Simulated scan of single mutants.
Amino acid sequence: MSAKYNHWHKSRHSDPNGDCVEVAKGSGGTIGVRDSKAGTPDIVLELSRTEWAHLLTRLRNV
């Protein structure tokens, strides 16, 4: 993980049991995405702001 991530936010669509997708801004301008079910907070998908915008656009159009 190259960027440091702080202030993780849970998805509004999270399961009531706490399993969720979390998102945070990175110190290098990237966006980090992690799955709380993964068992470790060290596994983070890093996206550029452009990649993040494309992902959100695709998800909203599904």
Rank of each mutant, 00 (worst) to 15 (best):
A3R: 03
A3T: 07
A3G: 05
K4E: 06
K4W: 02
H7Q: 14
H7P: 01
W8Y: 09
W8V: 09
W8G: 05
W8F: 12
H9D: 07
H9Y: 09
H9L: 14
H9F: 13
H9W: 05
K10A: 11
K10I: 06
S11H: 04
S11E: 06
R12D: 11
R12T: 15
H13W: 11
H13E: 06
H13A: 13
H13N: 13
D15C: 11
N17P: 06
C20K: 02
V21K: 02
V21S: 04
V21I: 15
E22M: 12
E22W: 08
E22R: 07
V23Q: 04
A24I: 06
A24L: 07
K25T: 07
K25G: 08
G26C: 07
G26V: 07
G26M: 08
G26R: 06
S27M: 11
S27Y: 07
S27A: 14
G28A: 15
G28V: 09
G29R: 07
G29F: 05
T30C: 04
T30W: 01
I31Y: 00
I31A: 01
I31E: 00
I31G: 00
R34Q: 05
R34V: 10
R34N: 10
D35S: 12
D35Y: 08
D35L: 14
D35G: 08
S36D: 03
K37P: 01
A38V: 02
A38K: 01
G39L: 06
T40W: 08
P41Y: 06
P41D: 14
P41K: 13
D42T: 15
I43H: 09
V44K: 10
V44P: 02
L45T: 06
E46A: 09
L47A: 06
S48Y: 10
R49L: 03
R49P: 01
R49Y: 00
E51P: 00
W52K: 04
W52Y: 15
H54F: 08
L56E: 02
L56V: 14
L56M: 06
T57F: 00
R58F: 00
R58D: 00
L59Q: 09
R60P: 00
R60D: 01
R60C: 02
R60Q: 10
N61G: 12
N61V: 04
V62T: 12
